[in-house]
């Protein structure tokens, strides 16, 4: 019996390495997930449990914070604003950025590389330096506190982001694909929409999702460019955290935080298959 199950030393070592890797994975996951776990946990605590020292994992959960904040008039409209702004800027950026990335990858244009680099460099300007001029421009145009203003403002960083990701993806596709399509009867646009876009779909979708998440979580521009009608969830969180009159309401803060994260997680899980495929392709081809 013992002779049957004696593992070779090599196999032992390999399985030990395997266990170590799994353990490492678990540790990393805990480090990343713990703050989120703590946020969700805190959102179900009452004021007393929150401030217990040492912090407690066991308490009677309450949904008071959710009830309070969901019934306060402004959280639902803000959620809607966030959805409008994130999908608006995500979609706008994916359309503009993809076409720009395609042009940079394919059109033989003197200075195309320089143009691409300049657009990328524009991302090096700290957002705070742009926020105030943007506010002044928006005010002059009578565009403050409007969805379209935030959508346009977010596109200033999302378009370059999409453009660079998609450009490197397009560079990995052989030119002959479009050339073949153009000989087969397509115009350049036809070749792009009928051949290139369908092939790029996984990459496009994952880029779109990342863009929407970036817009979903953005705080600075939202803070500067909106005050009531178009204000988004991150602004609400900042408002609660910075409430100097009543002191920070941690339960409320974490409840709204949870509300912000849940849609992202659900969305990511729904499109996980596409997301991973897109990421993997980006890694090997880009």
């Amino acid at each position: 019996m013992s002779t049957v199950v004696t593992p070779a030393p090599q196999r032992l070592r390999r399985s030990l390495g395997h266990k170590l890797r799994i353990a490492g994975g678990i540790v990393v996951s805990i480090v990343f997930l713990f703050p989120i776990y703590w946020m969700v946990l805190t959102s179900f605590k009452d004021q007393v449990d929150i401030f217990t020292n040492p912090p407690t994992f066991f308490f009677t959960p309450t949904i008071a914070a959710y009830v309070e904040y969901m019934t306060r008039a402004d959280i639902v409209p803000r959620l809607i604003n966030t959805i409008i702004v994130a999908s608006g800027s995500g979609l706008l950026s994916i359309v503009v950025g993809t076409m720009a990335g395609y042009a940079l990858a394919r059109i033989r244009l003197r200075g195309a590389a320089t143009i691409g680099l300049l657009i990328l460099l524009s991302r090096g300007v700290p957002p705070i330096a742009l926020a105030v001029p943007m506010f002044l421009v928006a005010r002059k145009l009578g565009l403050t506190d409007k969805h379209i203003t935030l959508i346009l403002a977010y596109s200033t960083f999302l378009v370059p982001y999409v453009m660079w990701l998609m450009r490197s993806f397009f560079l990995s596709l052989p030119r002959e694909l479009e050339e073949s399509a153009m000989i087969d009867g397509c115009s350049r646009y036809g070749a792009f929409f009928k051949i290139i876009v369908p092939i790029s779909l996984p990459g496009l979708l994952s880029t779109l999702i990342f863009s929407m998440i970036l817009a979903w979580e953005e705080l600075l521009f939202a803070l500067v460019l909106t005050n009531r009608h178009a204000s988004t969830i991150p602004v609400a969180i900042a408002g609660i955290a910075g409430d100097t009159v009543n002191g920070a309401n941690w339960a409320a803060l974490t409840a709204v935080g949870t509300i912000t994260v849940v849609p992202v997680v659900v969305f990511a899980l729904l499109v996980q298959k596409w997301l991973i495929k897109g990421l993997a392709e980006g890694a090997t081809k880009g």
Binding site: E176, S180, M182, I183, G185, P198
Partner: peptide, 30 residues
């Protein structure tokens, strides 16, 4: 005159088959 209006067909070294279309669709595309 654009390639599509020259009434030519071309076979490339890397074949340039459309990866998302099956053989029938590839052949019927034009």
């Amino acid at each position: 005159i654009a390639p599509k209006d020259r009434d030519i067909a071309m076979v490339f070294q890397n074949y340039a088959l459309y990866p998302h279309k099956n053989v029938r669709e590839n052949m019927g595309f034009a």
